[in-house]
């Protein structure tokens, strides 16, 4: 896709023009913004507002540290306040971005030698795509829990044996049921690092399972969305 945005159109450090919108499902889309000078660590999030509005929300960065764009993955939440408004944005609309924030993410030294399992529900896959884009050589597995198989956002970007899709409402994933059900069946090497991202109920259940399997809480990092 051709870039519609030249860096010199950026008005201010925190104002960005939407450059591209990718519709991934009926409810989920990504916003591509010009990356310009925005530096971040894979796994971090931004706070985003709509110019002229008075609210903002946090979004994990979906793109890699060296990708051409700054991208976020957004699911429109039924009866939500902000996401329906984000959904109405057009290419050329302005958003306000603050950040990057947060300690969740990947250190380069660890990425080079560690073994990782990324566990995500829904759009919680966002920071992991950023990590995989940034560190293509990383030794990882993704366990992604969604309701329908169409929510396997950008699945083709992950090597087939590294990505497991757990679907709770249709049988077209790799595992039919909640990701926590699948997690119970898994075996992991003792030195594995776990990164969990998504809603707090999933994270709570997954933590319990990992602790039961004998993993130390210090090996597990969490990013809670809601």
């Amino acid at each position: 896709m051709m870039s519609l945005m030249k860096p010199d159109i950026q008005m201010d450090e925190s104002f960005y023009k939407v450059e591209e919108i990718r519709h991934l499902t009926g409810e989920t889309f990504s916003l591509k913004l010009p990356k310009a000078r925005f530096a971040f660590k894979a796994g971090q999030h931004i706070s985003m507002g709509i110019v002229g509005g008075n609210q903002s929300r946090e979004y994990s960065i979906y793109s890699g540290e060296n990708d051409e764009n700054l991208e976020v993955l957004i699911k429109e939440v039924e009866n939500g306040y902000f996401t329906p408004r984000l959904r109405r944005l057009k290419v050329g609309s302005m958003v306000e971005v603050h950040g990057p924030f947060g300690k969740f993410g990947m250190e380069p030294e660890l990425a080079a030698k560690g073994k990782f399992v990324f566990i995500a529900s829904g759009t919680g896959i966002a920071p992991f795509r950023s990590i995989v884009h940034t560190y293509p050589e990383i030794d990882y597995r993704i366990i992604h829990g969604v309701r329908y198989s169409k929510e396997a956002y950008d699945r083709q970007e992950y090597a087939g044996d590294r990505y497991t899709l757990c679907t709770s409402r249709d049988k077209d994933g790799d595992y039919y049921g909640r990701l926590t059900g699948y997690l119970k069946t898994c075996k992991f090497a003792p030195e594995t690092h776990f990164d969990l991202c998504g809603n707090s109920n999933m994270i709570f259940d997954a933590l319990e399972i990992l602790k039961e399997k004998g993993f130390d809480r210090d090996q597990i990092h969490c990013e809670v969305y809601f």
């Binding site: 707090s200 994270i203 709570f204 933590l207 809480r217 990092h221 969490c222 809670v224």
Partner: peptide, 12 residues
């Protein structure tokens, strides 16, 4: 631990 997660407190 459940409340701590809802608070986004990252320890248990």
């Amino acid at each position: 631990d459940k409340t701590l997660l809802r608070m986004r407190r990252m320890y248990d």
